[in-house]
Nucleic acid binder design. Sequence first.
DNA 1: AGGTTACTTTTGAAAGC
DNA 2: GCTTTAAAAAGTAACCT
Lengths: 208, 193
Amino acid sequence: KYRKWQQRVRVQTSYERNIIQAMNELSRISSQLGIPKACVDEAMGVYEQVLTKGLVRGRSVEAIVAACLHMACRKIGMPRSLDEISQYTRASRKEVARCFRLIARELGVRLPLSDPKLYVPRIVEQLKLSGEILKEALNILEQAKRKGLTAGKDPAGLAAAAVYIASLLRGEVRTQKEVAMAAQVTEVTVRNRYKELARELNIKIPIK
Amino acid sequence: MANPTYRIENIVATVNLGIDLDLDKLAERLPAAEYNPEQFPGLILRLQRPKISALIFRTGKMVCTGAKSENELKRAVKELVRLLNEHGADVPLTPEIQVQNIVASGNLHAEVDIEKSALMLENSMYEPEQFPGLIYRMDDPKVVLLIFSSGKIVCTGAKKEQQVRDAVFKIHDVLRDIGALYEEEGGKEEEEL
DNA sequence: AGGTTACTTTTGAAAGC
DNA sequence: GCTTTAAAAAGTAACCT
């Protein structure tokens, strides 16, 4: 009769239990960040590989899940910073970053270089700006890249500045503060990037 | 095309005095000492002259940081030994000094296309969201280099100055060979060895 | 807006948690 | 893994005037 009890209790293997816990953490974090399903599925796929490789041992499922989500977002082309993701986790940004590097190395994942353009859609959407602004911002970032103005700079700050400039040029003005908040950077960063881009790309901002 | 230049910024070394020390007694007698065993097991001593800091342990082992040359390091150790012996300890006058790490800043005198470098160098990592420099792990000499688009670099992990020199010249050649270096628009600058 | 200070990254050792 | 030391690079951030 003991075997029967054991069979009933162990309707799940430890692997399955772990996967379910990870799915719960993942959906909780993802819903709070409004991350699309395709990205969540990708993250779960990464998590399964990580679990199968035994990389979760000794680490918190939460931190690993957060790292998988960060990786999935980048794979999908909709980057979310480690700060944003770890904010909804008990793990620190540093711990999540560690897990991310471990996973990238162990799974041999070579992610594409960060691209400021990938940050534009979210900012434009959050500020309820038009597709024209989106195009203009991408244009500005392309010019910036060609002139070597993006090296070493936070892509979110560059994208924010490009959107800010585009909004000024198209008359759909948003304040530096609004753009900064949407991009999750400070006003100072938006201002610094904006000044440099406007100066180096010879962009004339209409005085209102 | 100017050769790359570098400057040693910090040397980390360990010193074994070979005798156990009474840190509580030392902490009482040395006014400048900082000692909070609950927080950290070592006693912290900061020297003014050669501006270096020392972590002194119960076992008689020390860690010295902040020296910008081996000469400065030796002078600091002499001073530390003098201080310890002046305050009740009895340590050898010329203990063994082992350099554990040398940190140097440098300049390639050319702008670097770090994105191209990140794509072409296998042992590199570049995440501008986190840090503006490209992190490159060199196998020989075994050091880590932080490379910035300005051409300024940081070399860390070397135990000999020759390794710093080799690493700096080597990374310059590597970047030049993959076509990631290009001349700066501006005129000349000033830099030291 | 500007200025200052401080944190991000990397490296290494020490003794103890 | 953490704690503590020092140091540079360039960027971002927090706080004060």
